[in-house]
């Protein structure tokens, strides 16, 4: 019954292959069904919102899509091809990057090192040791921050000394810098002030303009209405609706979140 209702809402006008398709994703922890039979898709350049109360299954979905945890059942397809994510590296090589809510930056390291962490440019190998090419990384880091629209004082500044908005910018730039097709953002503005939030919104719209799809997990209704093309609402581990933002409203979304509807 639930399956049918989701499918009937799912009337994509385009015939393009989605960047990401999840079919019947489930995650069980013992007897607890954190996520049951979730179907969703994201098209290229689309900003898709994920809303729902705490414990509705949003974080579980993020963990599965980012490769942090395997699903109990279901399939993930990237541009039509089935994929299995065992580690975050698998998800990343398939073109999915994640900006975690805690940002996952190394606070003691500089901006450049964080942007290239795990993907450092190497000058040459000496025995088993790879000698870093910091000059090359610095040039690319400046380009990347410029492209995304992140203002930091310098690429050699330690991340721990930056403002919350700047850190968020570095984390997004790190995710966006590798030709990724889909970026998952988990509550990207929860810790930010008004101006910084606006700046992150601009960055997200800039990514969309470049054809990058964004999966935006958020509690911020205004943000979701302003930025997204579609919204999936989660309740008790299930997707209860797939709404086109332009044809929906805060009231409708809230009624799905609380269970008044769906």
């Amino acid at each position: 019954m639930h399956q049918v209702s989701v499918a009937s809402l799912d009337h994509s006008k385009t015939v393009t292959t989605p960047i990401l398709e999840a079919i019947g994703l489930s995650k069980h922890y013992g007897g607890i069904h954190a996520l049951s039979d979730a179907d969703l898709h994201i098209n290229p350049g689309e900003v898709v919102g994920i809303m729902g109360d705490n414990g509705a299954g949003k974080s579980t979905l993020v963990k599965i899509l980012s490769g942090a945890q395997p699903a109990t059942a279901g399939q993930i397809r990237i541009s039509g091809a089935p994929q299995t994510f065992k580690t975050p590296t698998d998800a990343r090589s398939a073109g999915i990057e994640t900006v975690y809510q805690d940002l996952s930056l190394a606070e003691h390291l500089d901006v450049l090192s964080n942007l290239f962490l795990g993907r450092e440019e190497v000058l040459f190998k000496f025995g088993g040791l790879s000698i870093l090419n910091r000059r090359k990384m610095a040039i690319r880091a400046k380009e990347l921050l410029g492209e995304i629209g992140v203002n930091v004082p310098g690429v050699n500044d330690v991340v721990g000394g930056l403002s919350g908005g700047q850190r968020q910018g570095v984390a997004i730039a790190r995710a966006a810098g590798w030709g990724s097709q889909l970026i998952i953002m988990d509550e990207p503005t929860a810790a930010l002030g008004l101006q910084e939030t606006q700046h992150v919104h601009d960055i997200i719209l800039g990514l969309k303009a470049r054809g990058v799809a964004v999966l935006l997990v958020s509690h911020n209704m205004q943000q979701v209405l302003q930025l997204t093309d579609r919204v999936y609402v989660f309740r008790r581990g299930k997707i209860v609706c797939n709404l086109e933002t332009a044809n929906s409203s805060a009231d409708e979304i809230i009624s799905y979140i609380t269970g008044a509807k769906g």
Binding site: P88, R92, T98, D102, S104, A106, H108, L117, G118, R119
Partner: peptide, 13 residues
């Protein structure tokens, strides 16, 4: 990086 943020560094691959 490991000393600064082990989980984050692991997530970075």
């Amino acid at each position: 990086a490991v000393g600064s943020n082990k989980v984050g560094t692991s997530r970075a691959g």
